[in-house]
């Protein structure tokens, strides 16, 4: 299945001009660089607590549920 033409492509504009490879590489680097800053954001407590809760609710750690 190939959808060469994404309907959602938003191609109301004429075909994009050719980009030099260097510019395209720069985009990749830039995206990665910014994204890595997002990765460094601390994990909110609520998500850590959620994992703890889930762990406690798992049947394995709940002796009463053991069959």
């Amino acid at each position: 299945m190939t959808d060469e033409h994404d309907q959602s492509g938003g191609d109301s504009r004429p075909k994009a001009p050719e980009m030099p490879d260097a510019a395209i590489d720069a985009v990749g680097r830039k995206v990665k660089q910014s994204y890595e800053k997002l990765l460094k954001e601390p994990i909110p407590d609520r998500l850590i607590e959620l994992l703890d809760q889930l762990e406690q609710s798992s049947p394995e750690n709940n002796p009463e549920d053991k069959t």
Binding site: A16, A26, K30
Partner: peptide, 28 residues
Amino acid sequence: RARARLAELMQIESVDDFSIDSIGMSVA
């Protein structure tokens, strides 16, 4: 397409808007 579109934006839009790093800016 995504890469090409962003590369295009970096060139067309004001460079300040993207505060492109030195490498990106020289490319643009």
